[in-house]
Amino acid sequence: MAELLKSFRPDVTWANAGGAWPDMIFSTRVRFARNLEGFAFANRAAADRLAEIRRLVFAAARESGMFPRGHYLKMEALGPLEKSFLAERHHISPVLASSVLPSGAVISNDEDLSVMINEEDHLRLQCLSAGFAIEDALRSALKLDEVLGGNLRYSFAEQFGFLTACPANAGTGIRISCLAHLPAMARLGRMPAALESLSRLGVIARGIYGEGTYVLGDFYQIANAACLGRSEEAFSRNMDKVIRNLIRQEIGARELLMKGAAKLKTEDAVFRALGVLRHARAVSYNEFMQNMSLARMGAAMGWNMGLDFSTFNQLTLLMQPAHIQAAAGRALTPAGRDAFRADYLRKKLN
C-alpha cells in the first residue's frame, strides 16, 4: 500500500458542513488558470521544458510559505491508486491523472489549497472551502495567485488578460464552482429545465468530478462558463446570485415533496435508503451515492438519520473506490470494495 495515501488525513476540513446552506452546498472552489512566460503551453512544450516548469512552480510554492508541510507530487512517480485518490479528493483532474508527461501537484497540508502543474495550463491553482463560501474561497485563491505570481512570471497581455491554452479560460482565468446537492429538484424531474436556464445565465453544470463526468447522487458542480471582460468580483457576484436562486428552487421542491400525499412517498423512499445504508452487505459506490442522497435529503427535511451533514460529507469522500482501498490499507477487487463499504457503513450508522 502506497505510503503517500497514509500521509493524507482521513477527514478533510473543506468537506465539513459549513456556510449558510450546508444541506445544499457541499463545497466551493475558486481556481485560476495561469501559464509561465517564455514557455510553450503544456500541450506543445517538450518534456524537459515541462520538467523545468514543474521545478519553477515547486520552488515558487516553497518560497510562498503557503504550503507548510504540504505535498509536492510528481505525477509520473505515482501509481494509479494514488492518482485516483487525489482525483477523488478534487486535487487533480482526471486529465492530469492520466498524463504521462512531467506534471505534478502541490497540495497544502490541510488540503484547502492546491496547484496542478502541467495539466492543460502550466498552473491551475485552487482554493477549496467548506459549504457556500464564494467570497472566502475567492479571497484565498487571489492571495495564492498573488504570491505565486510574484515568484513566477505569468503570461499576460492587456487585451486578453492571463493567457491560457484554451481561449475559453483566458482573461481572468477564473472558475468559481459550487458542489450543490439538489435531490428534491432531481426527484421532481426539474433538473433538465433548471440546467437549461442556467446555461442562459452563462453558467454550466457538470458531474461531481468536473468536466465530462456523470451526475452521481444528485450532486452538481455549478460553475461560470465565461471568464473574460468582467472583474473577478463581478463573476463571483453573478455565481452567488445563481446559486442563491438554485437554493430557492430546491427549497421549493422540498416543500412540494413534504406536502399531502407526497410526504408519505418521500418518507418511505428516504427511510428505505437509510435501510440499505444501515443493513446491506454489499454496496457499490453508485448505490451508496443514490441512497446517501436520499438520506441526506431526509436529514435536510428534519428527519433523524443519525448523521450530521459533516459526517454525510466525509462519508461521501470516504466511500469512493480509491478511498475505500486507502482505508482498507490494501488494493481490493470491486466486490471486495463493495463488502468493505457495506461493513464500514454498518459500523458508522448503527
Binding site: 483566458a170 472583474s231 473577478e232
Partner: peptide, 29 residues
C-alpha cells in the same frame, strides 16, 4: 471574434499583472 462569442467580450477587465520576480531557472533553461 472568437472571444466575443465565447465570453461576450473581447477585452480583459479583471485584475492586471505587474509581472513577477525573476524566477531561478535551471542552468540549461
Amino acid at each position: 471574434e472568437l472571444m466575443a462569442r465565447i465570453h461576450g467580450f473581447a477585452r480583459h477587465a479583471g485584475r492586471g499583472y505587474a509581472g513577477g520576480g525573476a524566477p531561478e531557472f535551471s542552468r540549461a533553461e
